[in-house]
């Protein structure tokens, strides 16, 4: 057992993946000596060399495009996108090539590429440093999309992502990078498959569905609700594509009330898919419509206003209250 920050947990997971398989590479801007702007790759270049931990030219399309080429040659590249807002120059390579090439080859080609993206707001940053672009990628067939929420998952999920033969978009909640927890790095027995959801808190009255940075906020909301005599179940989805529908539906049927929480705009956000699916599958079990709490349909605001934009305890509990008004 070690106590690790989320950032260090990914770092340890990357180290393990590189030790396990010499074909694993890391590539990105400032990932070498600097160890990345969030220090997620700290020390890896020193230990694995410049051929395996590659400071690339400043071009995201180039990072993902060459990662595809390396994968075609048998490597397993892990790309770091410095901030969520800078994945868009790489969107063409991710959407038109990475997601579709395996199918185009009728399965002859595998592209085990991981694209790591620090995501979300809450750190007081300037424009383009607080985005939640997951829906662009969950909308693209051919990509696995996952989001870790805590150090232990971060450690195990990054290793599973690297082992996956499909391309994986790997979201890291940047405002949780410094949060600490115990991680068992000695065994893999405790690992939850990276495409399964986890019930992180049991409850009976309302189900909160979240992923990435909002899981912690939902757990806090559940604690607060308990004081008011309400029992909230919190599910950490972990994987957005594929989605663990059985676990989600089981909980929805049990509580009959579901609130989806994410930082991304509600309108056309990932919560829309959840709400529609739950309605289709659990209609007769529901006591209320599935409600969504998330960002507004505006660009991410200047940081002085981000606390208004981001879902917090109060907004989550207000939605929970509303599920009892139907």
């Amino acid at each position: 057992m070690s106590i690790l920050t989320l950032s260090k947990a990914i770092n340890e997971g990357l180290r393990k993946a590189m030790e396990d398989d010499p074909k694993v590479l890391i590539m990105g801007e400032d990932v070498g000596k600097l160890g990345g702007v969030f220090r997620v790759t700290d020390g890896l270049q020193k230990d694995f060399g410049e051929d395996r931990v590659i400071d690339t030219p400043l071009a995201e399309s180039g990072i993902v495009g060459t990662a595809i080429g390396l994968a075609l040659r048998g490597y397993r590249p892990i790309c770091e996108i410095q901030f969520d807002g800078f994945v868009f120059p790489a969107a063409d390579q991710i959407i038109t090539q990475l997601a579709k090439m395996p199918l185009r080859s009728l399965g002859a080609i595998k592209l085990p590429v991981v694209v790591r993206i620090p995501c979300g707001g809450g750190i007081g940053a300037v424009e383009h440093h607080s985005e939640s672009p997951e829906a662009y990628f969950t909308h693209t067939g051919g990509l696995r999309v996952v989001a870790c929420s805590n150090p232990a998952d971060a450690y195990s999920m990054i290793q599973q992502a690297v082992r996956s033969d499909d391309p994986v978009i790997f979201f890291e909640p940047k405002r949780r990078y410094w949060e600490k927890a115990e991680v068992d790095t000695a065994s893999t027995d405790w690992w939850t498959p990276f495409d399964e959801a986890s019930v992180v808190r049991q409850g009976t009255d309302v189900t909160l569905l979240a992923y990435g940075p909002m899981v912690k906020t939902c757990l806090e909301a559940a604690t607060a609700a308990q004081d008011e005599g309400r029992s909230l179940e919190v599910i950490d989805l972990r994987s957005l594509n594929p989605l663990d529908f059985p676990k989600v539906m089981e909980s929805a049927r049990k509580t009959g009330r579901v609130v989806v929480v994410h930082e991304a705009p509600v309108y056309n956000g990932f919560g829309a898919e959840l709400a529609a699916r739950i309605t289709e599958s659990c209609f007769y079990h529901l006591e209320s419509p599935v409600l969504r709490v998330g960002g507004f349909s505006t660009p991410y605001p200047p940081s002085k206003l981000e606390d208004h934009y981001l879902p917090d305890l109060d907004r989550i509990l207000e939605a929970v209250d509303r599920t009892f008004t139907y």
């Binding site: 801007e29 400032d30 000596k33 600097l34 400071d55 030219p57 400043l58």
Partner: peptide, 10 residues
Amino acid sequence: WAISEPLEKQ
């Protein structure tokens, strides 16, 4: 410099 990357990386 581009953050930590010296010119020869570009």
